[in-house]
């Protein structure tokens, strides 16, 4: 019996750390920021469920330099995510035809970023406006 042995092209182990794949790796790495932020929120909710003292520990953690540096990284990751998300969006959706013309991808990206910017301003405004 002969077994088929297909040729497998060798791939560099660190291919993802090199151009042009590094851009892809960095884009995917924004998922770590999204997950990391969710974990911080989840920790807050668990502390909230545990009681006031546990919740205060969480609040104190948020004030630590560790947490502040972490959230600066999360913010950079989130902004990179917003930008790359709306860059990918037109490539993953059906083509939009308006008035017999295909809507250019860059217009969809610009529209998405504009909505995200409006949402950012609205959320910050509401948060500042409604605080005690």
């Amino acid at each position: 019996m002969s077994r088929s042995r297909p040729y497998i092209r060798p791939v560099e182990t660190l291919w993802w750390a090199r151009s042009p794949y590094l851009a892809y790796t960095l884009r995917e790495a924004t998922g770590v920021a999204v997950l990391g932020y969710a974990l911080v929120l989840l920790a807050g909710v668990v502390c909230l469920a545990t009681g006031e003292r546990a919740y205060d520990v969480w609040l104190d953690f948020l004030k630590s330099p560790w947490s502040l540096s972490l959230h600066v990284l999360f913010l950079i990751g989130m902004i990179a995510h917003t930008w790359t998300w709306f860059r990918i969006l037109p490539k993953t959706m059906p083509r939009l035809v308006i008035g017999g013309r295909i809507l250019p991808q860059i217009r969809i990206t610009a529209g998405g970023v504009a909505v995200a910017a409006a949402s950012f301003i609205l959320i910050v405004f509401v948060a500042v406006w409604t605080q005690p």
Binding site: L62, L68, F74, M78, H81, W85, S119, F120, I123, V124
Partner: peptide, 16 residues
């Protein structure tokens, strides 16, 4: 989509 729309504002408000 949710993270793209509200993620940056949430991180800025609750984390910073």
């Amino acid at each position: 989509m949710l993270a793209a729309l509200i993620g940056p504002a949430l991180v800025l408000l609750t984390g910073l």
